[in-house]
């Protein structure tokens, strides 16, 4: 396959950045998108040019590290797919592919296609945990009965890999799908109920402080999420937050 890549180049957070065109030749259709980028970078390095910076780690679709806004969609055109699991057979010979970083005020560009997603870590730290005793007398998790339905929903919410595709896809750069998945995975389980009210208020507050936008319920996040986190979680977060705010003394 021969392709034309239009790639965002930005030499650091303060650089204005621009689109640059790269022709790539003899690409194997069974390569992943990241491997195709590797081939391009090898060429750039052999020509003595600066390779394109992009995030990646496990390359198995489970870590959530790879990003890239490809042809107008996060992780490219395929559904339920991370960029490392996107293969070049999804494109046609001669295609022009536009590659950009996630664009959000809360995800500043570090270099080229790599963005800083530490805002997600700070939201998680604000309340995305349960306080359990780990000092030797840990209680067996299975000692508390959990309805199967709730366990399944909590597990589905917990499959969120924190990649940020929801923010990248949302026209408002809203992080509500991510935050709602993290709120839901605990709110649905008895172990998480203890801190549920405090958790949702703290996490939503941190989300607002990070400068993410608001939810318009377009559903773009759900459609683009590589693990299929449902909008049902956002509704759950809205319920949790409403009841927590109404009942709080503050």
């Amino acid at each position: 396959m021969n392709l034309t890549l239009k790639v965002w180049r930005q030499n650091g957070p303060d650089d204005k950045g621009h689109m640059e065109i790269y022709p790539v030749k003899d690409i194997n259709p069974d390569m992943s998108f990241l491997e195709m980028m590797d081939v391009l970078n090898e060429e750039l390095i052999s020509e003595g040019k600066d390779p394109i910076a992009f995030d990646h780690d496990c390359r198995e679709g489970i870590c959530g590290m790879c990003s890239m806004f490809i042809n107008g969609e996060p992780h490219g055109p395929e559904r339920r797919t991370t960029t490392c699991q996107l293969h070049m057979r999804s494109f046609k010979d001669g295609d022009t592919i536009v590659v950009e970083p996630w664009r959000s005020a809360a995800f500043p560009v570090i270099k080229d296609l790599a963005v800083d997603r530490a805002a997600f870590d700070r939201i998680q730290q604000a309340g995305g945990y349960v306080s359990v005793n780990t000092s030797g007398n840990t209680i067996d998790a299975n000692a508390i009965p959990v309805p199967k339905q709730n366990a399944d929903k909590a597990f589905n919410a917990a499959t969120c890999i924190g990649c940020g595709a929801c923010v990248a896809a949302c026209k408002n750069s809203s992080a509500m799908l991510f935050v709602s998945a993290k709120v839901s995975q605990y709110a649905l389980l008895p172990q998480g109920k203890v801190e549920a009210k405090e958790r949702v208020r703290k996490m939503v507050n941190q989300m607002d402080l990070e400068g993410f936008g608001n939810c318009t319920n377009t559903g773009a996040c759900e459609a683009e999420c590589p693990v299929g986190i449902s909008l049902e979680n956002i509704a759950r977060m809205n319920r949790e937050y409403l009841s927590a705010s109404l009942s709080s003394a503050e």
Binding site: K6, W8, G17, M19, F69, N71, G72, E73, P77, V98, E100, R103, S104, A105, A106, A169, K171, N172, S173, S174, G211, F212, G213, N214, T216, N217, T218, G219, A220, A223, E224
Partner: peptide, 27 residues
Amino acid sequence: LTIQNRKARPVKYHYENPSANSGWASR
């Protein structure tokens, strides 16, 4: 809300394909 939403994405995408994931009215 709209002002906040615009501020949340100060640098726009060069190419977007929004109809792939959402309805016109919702956007």
